[in-house]
């Protein structure tokens, strides 16, 4: 039932919003993974980031796509928790360890093991519009644990203009989405995080973005 609701929500609302009202300018679409397990890692400016990344993949893959999201934020009440897990399909993750032996990445590992495609924001939270914040370590630990899984770096620009943090009014702008060559933990044992960051920064360098002051 909720799988059907999720499909309808994305087919009738999210995709028209992202692909028609906003509109994507995608570079190197061929670098997107055709199937899981894989991890899409992108910079994070807006709640819509997740919806844009999900819209990059075919609707038929929808049930395989799991955005990794903060449990304390997206599960803070029952209605939001239902919407986040059943409709958006998030994989809730605890930002703070609640017990010393708890493994915050266990859910991600299990999802990758069954061939899902995760969406991971290495910056953690949304941060300043159109600025790249410090990357956190979770994504590198996940890569070390799954050394064969491809991590696809993605740079997105424009959502900080269309719907920045704290704003409710959506203003249409075309969004740039640049896809990078995938990295995997096996090839980058010691330097996964800096390599991922450099890759996303290099993608940002491919574009020429109008100033937004």
């Amino acid at each position: 039932m909720s799988r059907l609701l999720r499909w309808l929500f994305f087919a009738l609302f999210v995709r028209p919003l992202v692909l028609v009202i906003l509109g994507l300018n995608v570079r190197h679409r061929e670098r997107l993974p055709k199937h899981g397990p894989a991890v899409l890692t992108a910079n994070h400016n807006s709640h819509l980031d997740t919806l844009v990344l999900i819209s990059l993949m075919p609707l038929g893959q929808l049930h395989r796509i799991r955005p990794v999201a903060a449990m304390d934020y997206f599960m803070r009440n029952r209605a939001l928790a239902w919407f986040s897990t059943q409709i958006i399909g998030i994989l809730p993750i605890a930002r703070q360890r609640r017990a010393p032996d708890e493994d915050p990445l266990a859910g991600c590992s299990a999802a990758l093991a069954q061939g899902d495609i995760l969406i991971f924001f290495p910056e953690g939270s949304r941060g300043e519009p159109e600025r790249l914040a410090e990357f956190r370590g979770g994504v590198a630990r996940l890569a070390a644990r799954h050394p064969e899984v491809p991590f696809v770096p993605i740079f997105m620009h424009g959502l900080g203009k269309a719907l920045p943090r704290g704003e409710a009014l959506l203003v249409p702008f075309f969004l740039d989405v640049f896809i990078g060559e995938s990295l995997c933990g096996r090839e980058h044992v010691d330097n996964f995080l800096p390599c991922l960051r450099r890759s996303i920064e290099a993608l940002r360098g491919e574009g020429r973005f109008a100033s937004w002051e």
Binding site: G23, P129, G158, L169, F174, A210, S211, W212
Partner: peptide, 16 residues
């Protein structure tokens, strides 16, 4: 119009 606005420099305050 959307394409034009995405190309030109815009001011953050002008979203409205």
């Amino acid at each position: 119009f959307k394409e034009y606005l995405s190309l030109i420099p815009t001011r953050r305050v002008d979203r409205q």
